[in-house]
Simulated scan of single mutants.
Amino acid sequence: MGIVERKEREREEMRKLILDGAQKLFLANGFEKVSVRNIADEIEYSPATIYLYYKDKNELLFALHQRGFVKMLESFQPLLAISDPFERLVEMGRSYIRFAVENPELFDLMFIMTAPMDTLDKKDWVEGDQAFGLLVQVVQECMNAGIFQQHDVQSTAMMIWSSIHGYTALFLRKRLGMFAECDRQPIMDDAFQLFCETIRRGL
């Protein structure tokens, strides 16, 4: 390995260390209560070291969002080979549930934790756009195939995402315990398929 490659690997390792520390503290204490100095103390480096990689904690939050959406997109990739758009949509919902269950802390940081979205608004949010774009694409294919009635595709995609996201968030926050028959992941999978079938029938 050459000097350039070694230095780049060391930079990537430092970025990972910083992000891991930031994620741990954001989730434990909340975004507002965490400072760059806190993160530096957590990873046993000086704040100046963190500023070599990230200009502030908003940029750290954005980087963590990127990390989450890259991982989510990877879980969606095998589904692109499914030719039937309705079946692909249902499997995307199941994949979303699995991603949340297998990565609850990352999911919490991406979607649940209260934090300012200033940096996300200003940047070109490529990974997030790609994830939602895959949903819009499959919904449009369902409309083109006559599986769904023709509606505004963005609004329909948002309704579908909101449905599966709401159920998933309730499950992760343990708010379904009073409905024991609903508080299991396989039931969540079935519920999402039933929701899609309802849209399919135009009800």
Rank of each mutant, 00 (worst) to 15 (best):
Q149N: 14
L64A: 05
Q150W: 07
G93Y: 00
C182W: 05
S75K: 12
A169Q: 13
A22V: 01
E91H: 06
L194C: 07
A180D: 10
Y53P: 08
E42H: 10
M92I: 06
C142E: 07
K16M: 11
L176Q: 07
M158L: 14
R94D: 02
L73T: 03
Y96R: 12
L17R: 13
D121H: 14
L73D: 05
R11Q: 15
I164S: 08
V36H: 06
G128V: 02
D124S: 10
Q193Y: 06
I82Q: 03
E5Q: 13
E32I: 08
P116R: 02
S75E: 04
S46Q: 09
R184E: 11
L176H: 06
Q66S: 09
G166Y: 10
A22I: 01
R6A: 15
R37G: 11
I39T: 03
E102F: 12
Y51V: 02
Q137P: 04
I147V: 10
A28G: 04
D41W: 02
R15K: 15
F69T: 09
D84I: 08
L64I: 02
I164A: 07
G21T: 09
M113F: 01
Y54W: 01
D121E: 13
F62K: 00
I50R: 09
S75I: 02
E127Y: 10
L79V: 01
V90H: 05
Q66M: 07
D108Q: 14
V101S: 06
M110K: 01
S95F: 00
L109E: 06
M159N: 08
I164M: 13
I160W: 06
M159W: 01
L106M: 15
E32S: 13
S95N: 01
Y96C: 11
G133A: 03
K174S: 11
V36K: 04
N29R: 14
L120D: 05
D41G: 07
G177C: 09
F192D: 10
H65C: 01
M72R: 10
A157S: 11
H165T: 06
E44I: 00
S95A: 15
S95V: 07
Q185C: 09
V138L: 05
I50L: 08
T198H: 11
H165P: 02
G202C: 09
V136Y: 03
Y54I: 03
F179R: 08
M72V: 03
A169I: 12
R173D: 11
L172V: 04
E59R: 01
T119Q: 13
S35G: 09
A145P: 02
E91Q: 14
T156A: 05
E59H: 07
L172H: 05
E10M: 11
E13L: 08
D124F: 08
L79F: 06
Q154T: 11
Y54L: 04
E32Y: 08
T114Y: 04
N29A: 13
L135W: 03
A28M: 02
G146R: 01
V36Y: 04
L172W: 07
D152V: 00
D129T: 09
E91W: 02
F62S: 00
Y167A: 10
S163N: 12
E42C: 12
C196T: 08
M159V: 15
K7I: 14
M159Q: 11
E141N: 05
S155P: 03
R6N: 10
I3G: 04
I39Q: 04
L80S: 15
